[in-house]
Design a protein around this nucleic acid. Structure first.
Ligand SMILES: [Mn+2]
Ligand SMILES: [Mn+2]
Ligand SMILES: [Zn+2]
Ligand SMILES: [Zn+2]
Lengths: 144, 144
DNA sequence: ATAGAAATTAGAATTATTCTTGCTAGATCG
DNA sequence: CGATCTAGCAAGAATAATTCTAATTTCTAT
């Protein structure tokens, strides 16, 4: 047995690190971060607020916004916007876009086929510096 | 001389058509539409409101919003969102994305290199129906 | 432990957008 | 033409996501 999180069979919660990517961890930031990592369905700030009450019954909505902003600022999570809807939050740091399925309402991460580089297929003046790319799609996934 | 808009040298304003794409034209809708066609810099609703006062001193901001919504709904113009900033409006109906130049603040239309089809380079389940694609970029254009 | 800094909280404020209501103007009908 | 009908317009109120403020709490470092 090489690694295990505890002596008994159940996985224990990971310990809260002192910081992540230079962001000092607090109980609230840690729980917000873990919630996003565990439930990767792109919740809104209000979704996070409602879901996190189990673990932090006294957290305020302002703190949820503060934590999300701090995590976004430090590059630990990403903020995703669809039109003018409430912002959503995503823990997937790999380059990806978002597909909004009109049938289920769910939001899915979308990646490029291997070897594709978006900057290469856009018609931009040579020397253009791209710092950020956002791709959002709407449509219907096959019923499966 | 094959075509001319009037007898004298200056271009006359085009007449207001009865409708565009099934949307009944009104003076307000027409002026909003023409402003967007003439000033293709992706103005916000408030930008349109301020710029249009020359021609329609009595128009209300609510009417600007109503006109923009009606034009968007009928596919005559497009609504463009950058993060949570005010919506912007674009008269370019060809498939294109938007590049926000941090240096100048300007927003530029961006097209794909010839022959590129975005749906082909995304890794989506077969049978996925894409109804809408949005691409936004941020960065810096070369100083030229 | 103490002092300073940073984070959290509750609630107020902000702001882009939407809604409500009464009015206007053009279309339709006789 | 004159009456009626209807869609659109104007003004301001309402909404809702987000941000800000001020007071308190927690954390860090001495
Ligand atoms: Mn939600
Ligand atoms: Mn503007
Ligand atoms: Zn994502
Ligand atoms: Zn455009």
């Amino acid at each position: 047995m090489v690694t295990r999180s505890s002596d008994h069979g159940l996985d224990a919660s990971p310990e809260m690190p002192a910081e992540i990517s230079g962001l000092r961890m607090t109980r609230q930031r840690w729980e917000v971060y873990r919630l996003l990592m565990d439930q990767r369905d792109h919740p809104t700030a209000n979704d996070v607020f409602m879901r996190i009450k189990d673990r932090l019954p006294n957290i305020s909505l302002a703190t949820v916004y503060n934590c999300l902003e701090a995590l976004v600022q430090h590059g630990v999570i990403r903020q995703v916007n669809f039109d003018r809807e409430s912002s959503r939050f995503c823990p997937n740091l790999a380059e990806h876009g978002h597909f909004h399925d009109k049938l289920s309402g769910a939001i899915h991460d979308v990646v490029f086929k291997p070897g594709v580089n978006l900057a290469d297929i856009l018609d931009l003046p040579p020397g253009t510096l791209i710092t950020d790319i956002e791709i959002t799609l709407r449509g219907e996934l096959p019923v499966s």
